[in-house]
Amino acid sequence: MLSHNIPNTLSLFRIIAAPFILLAGWFEMPILFFILFGMLLLSDVLDGIIARVLDQTSELGSRLDSYGDILTYLCTPIAVWWLWPDIVKEELYYIVAAIVIYILPAIFSLLKFGKLASYHTWITKISAVLMSAGVLVLLVFDDNLLFHSAIYFLVIAMIENIAITLIISKQKSNIHSIWHAWNERS
Rank of each mutant, 00 (worst) to 15 (best):
L74H: 00
L22M: 08
V100I: 15
S3C: 06
I126G: 01
I6S: 12
L145N: 10
L139K: 08
I99M: 14
W26Q: 09
M131D: 01
Y67P: 00
I87R: 06
V45E: 05
R63T: 12
I167N: 03
W81G: 09
K112S: 07
L22A: 04
L23C: 10
L12I: 15
G38L: 10
V135Y: 05
T121W: 02
I95R: 04
L54H: 07
S132K: 02
Y93M: 12
L110C: 04
A24R: 04
I78D: 09
L12G: 02
A133Q: 05
I50E: 05
Q171M: 12
L22V: 01
I50A: 08
W122D: 02
I15L: 10
A98D: 10
S173C: 11
N174K: 07
T72Q: 10
R185K: 14
W182E: 10
S173E: 13
R52E: 01
A181F: 09
L46A: 13
I99W: 05
V45S: 10
L92M: 13
L116N: 03
F147D: 11
D47M: 08
K172D: 13
V96P: 08
F113W: 03
F27T: 09
I164C: 04
Y152L: 14
I164L: 06
D55I: 03
G25T: 08
F113P: 02
E59F: 04
P19C: 07
L130Q: 00
Y94H: 13
L42K: 01
M1D: 10
W26M: 10
F147I: 04
S177H: 11
H176D: 15
V100L: 13
A106F: 03
A106H: 03
M29F: 08
S11G: 15
V88E: 02
G61S: 06
P30I: 02
E59H: 09
I164D: 05
S109A: 14
D44G: 15
I159C: 06
I21F: 06
L138I: 09
N144R: 14
I95P: 02
D86N: 13
G68E: 03
A97P: 01
A163S: 15
N183L: 14
P19W: 11
P77R: 07
A117Y: 03
Y102C: 08
K170V: 12
M1Q: 12
Y94W: 14
V129C: 01
G61T: 07
L92D: 02
L32R: 01
K115I: 00
Y102G: 12
L111E: 10
D44Q: 10
A17H: 06
A106E: 08
W81F: 15
I123T: 13
T76V: 13
S62N: 09
L166C: 11
G134P: 11
I31K: 11
I6G: 09
